[in-house]
């Protein structure tokens, strides 16, 4: 068997993507927990930790570039490196969305939530589940699982619409809550984008596995 060193580099990349995925899952979970109780201290931590996610993305990109430059990968090796580059970018943006929720917590301040959060945590749960499963599908090269995950995006979209409708009715009823209702709409929007980013990852898994590059689930947003 040749190219053992190259294979080890690829395994390192997969490990790094898994770690980055875990960092993003933690960031999303923490951001929602912080939003539920308006914990600005926790929010500050999420914002600070996003730097680590960003750095992880650059580290992965650098490794990918070095592998392309020095190993001249082709076929599925090349597709894997391209997929990893793309996945790292999407994970980094998901980290930014979690950071965005953290910033909303800080903007919201100590003013009580205008309503208990129901749909937003549910959106977050689905996003986290989609993300974990997508990383698993990446490691297993499972195109069928990746395609199935994309269908979950519709659930997040529906919840997003629901959050928007409900908060709109709150704003119509009481214009004084517009600022805080808008914060929550932004938070929901961040989660909706996270789910879209997971579908991007799934598309890359299908590309990696089959060589076919196409959109699986067209977002309504």
């Amino acid at each position: 068997m040749t190219r053992e060193i190259f294979k080890k580099h690829i395994q390192t990349l997969e490990k790094e993507v898994t770690e980055m995925g875990e960092m993003v899952v933690t960031a999303i979970n923490r951001s929602i927990e912080a939003l539920k109780v308006l914990d600005s201290e926790a929010a500050e931590k999420i914002i600070a930790d996003d730097v680590k996610i960003n750095k992880k993305r650059w580290d992965i990109e650098e490794k990918c570039i070095n592998l392309i430059a020095t190993q001249q990968p082709v076929a599925s090796d090349l597709r894997e490196i391209i997929a990893v580059l793309s996945i790292a970018t999407d994970l980094e943006r998901m980290g930014d969305h979690a950071e965005g929720i953290g910033k909303i917590v800080i903007l919201h301040g100590k003013e009580p939530l205008i309503k208990p959060l129901v749909d937003i945590p549910q959106m977050a749960d689905i996003c986290v589940d989609m993300l974990k499963r997508s990383i698993d599908a990446f490691l297993k090269r499972d195109a069928a699982a990746a395609t199935a995950i994309c269908a979950e995006d519709d659930k997040v979209d529906l919840l997003h619409e629901q959050v928007y409708r409900v908060l709109l009715s709150y704003m119509i009823e009481n214009p004084r809550v517009i600022t805080y209702a808008t914060y929550l709409i932004w938070a929901a929007h961040n989660l909706e984008r996270i789910a879209d980013r997971v579908t991007n990852i799934c598309e890359r898994i299908v590309f990696l596995t089959t060589g076919s590059m196409h959109e699986i689930n067209v977002s309504r947003y």
Binding site: T2, R3, F6, V74, A75, S76, L78, R79
Partner: peptide, 19 residues
């Protein structure tokens, strides 16, 4: 051939796994 070969043998050769 160099991005998505149809045959595993081709893939293994062009990827440097034998030859």
């Amino acid at each position: 051939i160099f991005t998505n070969p149809g045959e595993k043998l081709t893939e293994n050769y062009i990827s440097g796994y034998f030859g």
